[in-house]
Amino acid sequence: MMPWVMRGLRDGIVTSRYPRRPDGYGLTFRAAVSIRRDDTTVVGTGRAVDAVAAACPTRAITSEVRQARVDRGKCILCGRCVAQRPEDFAFDPDTETAALRRDLLVVPGRNEDPAGLAELREELARRVRAFRRSIHVRHLDCGSDGTEEWEIAALTNPIYDIQRLGVFFTASPRHADLLLVTGAGAAGMLGPLRETYEAMPAPKVVVAVGSDAASGGLFAGTYATRGGIGDEIAVDVFIPGSPPSPFSIMHGILLAIGLLPIDTRAR
C-alpha cells in the first residue's frame, strides 16, 4: 500500500482550476472553426467561399449574401476550410463552445433572439436549482465513434477532476440528474435512449456531446442513423466537436447546471 501512497503524492496538485480561472491548455485547443471577419463576400471573395463551402465534407459552411457561416454542430474540425481560405476561416482556440440551442452553434449567429434565449436560460435555471451542488451524470452512447467516451472518461482524471465541482458519474438512470448523450443517433439506440430518459427522475437535463450527436456528422443520412439525437429527446445543451475536448464537455455540463461564472455564461 505504502508505495502507492507516495506515488500519489509525487506530482503534487495537477488539477485545473477551471472554471474559476481560465485554463492555459483549454485556451490553446483547436476547439471550433470561426469566421475571421464579417462581410466575407464584400471584399470579392464570395466565389472562393462558395468553393470552400462546397468542399466541406459535412456541408457545415453556408455562404449567403455578404456572410458565410459555419454550423459548428455539423463541423467535424477537419480544417479543410482553414487550409483553403485562412483569410476567412480560422480555428478558434476557445474550448467554451457549448450552446443552449442547436441554432446557436451557427456562427456568426443568425437570429440570436435574446428574449427567447433569456427565457430558455431562466427555465433551465429553474429546473436545475434543485440539484444544488451535487449533480449525478449518466452517459449514454447512441452511435459514437468511441472518442467521445474517452473524452468524457477523461473528466475523472486528476487534471479535470470533475468531482471537485460536485459532478459525479452514476451507474443507474434512476439516480441521474443529467444525461450525456453521444453519437450520431443510431436507430438501434433510440429506444434505449427514450427509456433511459423516461427512467430519470424529474427534474432532468440532457446534454448532447459532439457534432455527431448534434447533426450525425459524417454519418448523417445512412440507413442506420437519424442525424443526431435532437429529434428524439429534448436537448438542453449542445457541445460541438469531433470529439469535443474534455474542457468543452466540462463547459457544457457546467452551462447546463448553471455553475459557470457569470462572465462565461453569457454566450
Binding site: P57, I76, P192, L218, F219, T222
Partner: peptide, 25 residues
C-alpha cells in the same frame, strides 16, 4: 447491433479525401 451506424454506407458517394475522414471515425 445497438450502435450500428452503417459505416459502409457513410463512405458511399464520398471522394477519397472525405473517405479518410470517415475511416478516422
Amino acid at each position: 447491433h445497438y450502435k450500428h451506424r452503417g459505416v459502409e454506407a457513410a463512405f458511399a458517394g464520398r471522394s477519397t479525401e472525405d473517405g479518410v475522414l470517415v475511416a478516422e471515425r
